[in-house]
Amino acid sequence: MTRRHQTDETCGIATAAGVVGDWWTLLVLREIARGHVRFDGLAHELGLSRKVLSERLATLTEHQVLERRPYQERPTRHEYVLTERGRGLIPVLVSLQDWADRWVLGDGTLTGNADPEGGGSARVHQLVGTRVPEDPELPGTDGGLHSTVAPDARATVLFAYPATGVPGGPPRPDVPGAAGCTLENRLFRDAWPRFEAAGLAVRGVSTQTPREQADFARAEDLPFLLLSDDRLRLAAALRLPTFRSGQDLRLKRLILIVDAQRTVRHALFPVTDIPAAVEEALALAAALP
């Protein structure tokens, strides 16, 4: 048995490590945040023995990080979903990913750009052929909650961006590769009639607050929704690349083209030529059957 110092009893880091500090426990949480909430799906994604997986799920349920919900009778089967306490760990998971992308998989540079051969690029392109989870619904600039995929469109062009300026607010910190968000929104706005004519939806997503996004959308007269992922639930579900701007985690610029069945058909990342990327997204989405 590992001996603990007396100070560990009141240390938040030590206490948290006792709940989620195990390798497999963190990966179980990663997969549940991605929408794999059933036992067989978790075992398949993780390549984990049923015994070890059962132990980790039992521990997380005991600590009220997860809740078991029945989804089938005879035999009874359960889904494992994050509680409010568990959802509080999502920023921790995304921060760990961001730290590793920068300091372990990268060279330590703080940038809004991405290495086309890096881990973040690999994760984004691995999304092609996978389904976007039904949850989470995110707050939109109209005040409602919305899926990231428009329910009535032939396809959805979902573009993630770091942060726009806020009308009347202070300028954003200057991080290489982060500039261009206002331009990107304006280009999608200007191309909106062509997207609409093709039966396509456009949705932007950032980690800015709903109020910041609403102020910007109103000032720019945007005809499409902006969605706020300020709680990082979509970032965790899709393992999206991020970077730190001040104390905030920001999404790196990317574009996903998702069909009506919620399957990602194309991924554009990294995005360095914004005007060309908007036109490419329109062409790829319009070409979907």
Rank of each mutant, 00 (worst) to 15 (best):
E84S: 12
E79F: 04
T76V: 11
I90S: 04
L82Q: 01
T83M: 06
P75L: 05
Q97F: 07
R69F: 05
T76P: 07
I90D: 12
G88L: 08
Y71P: 07
R77W: 00
R69W: 06
Q97M: 13
R74D: 15
T83K: 00
R87A: 11
E84R: 11
V81K: 01
E84Q: 13
R85W: 07
G88C: 06
R85L: 14
W99A: 10
L96S: 09
R69M: 07
R77C: 05
V92A: 15
I90P: 04
L82A: 00
L93Y: 07
L93G: 03
T83S: 12
Q72T: 03
G86D: 05
Y71F: 15
Y80E: 02
R87G: 11
G88T: 13
T76D: 07
Q72W: 11
P75Y: 09
V94S: 08
H78T: 11
L93A: 05
E79Q: 12
L96G: 15
I90Y: 08
Y71G: 06
Y71N: 07
R74T: 09
R87V: 07
S95R: 12
T83H: 03
R87Q: 14
W99N: 09
R87N: 11
V94A: 05
H78G: 04
P91E: 03
L93F: 08
S95W: 01
P70C: 01
G86F: 03
L96P: 01
L89T: 06
R74N: 14
Y71L: 09
Y80P: 02
D98C: 10
R85E: 11
Y71A: 12
H78Q: 11
R77Y: 05
L89V: 02
V92K: 01
W99T: 14
P91N: 03
V81Q: 09
V94F: 03
S95T: 09
E73T: 13
D98G: 13
Y71C: 03
T83R: 04
L82E: 02
V94L: 11
V94Y: 05
